[in-house]
Amino acid sequence: MEGKLIAAHPVDDETLRRVEERFTRYFGQSVTLQVELDRALMAGFVVTVNHLRFDYSVRAKLSAMKKYLLTQQS
């Protein structure tokens, strides 16, 4: 399976290999990832493969926190 690894900062080969291995284990099939850069993520990364999106970026966490805080009584 082919997918994308979108990271906030440049990724070295070792990290890329480890991430690919993790997803290979998850899917039970060989996974290769194309690396892309997106500073908007702030930190962390997003992996998209097989119509599934795995968001481990700081931007996602902040967005979730914002949603949560808005539901709290002020």
């Binding site: 962390g44 998209t48 119509h51 599934l52 999106r53 795995f54 968001d55 481990y56 970026s57 996602a60 966490k61 979730a64 926190m65 949560y68 805080l69 709290q72």
Partner: peptide, 19 residues
């Protein structure tokens, strides 16, 4: 605000979504 932020469980965010 600080209290709400502390209550927030960050480990539940991110993860897998279909697209």
């Amino acid at each position: 605000l600080k209290a709400s932020v502390d209550k927030f469980d960050a480990s539940q965010t991110g993860g897998m979504r279909r697209y």
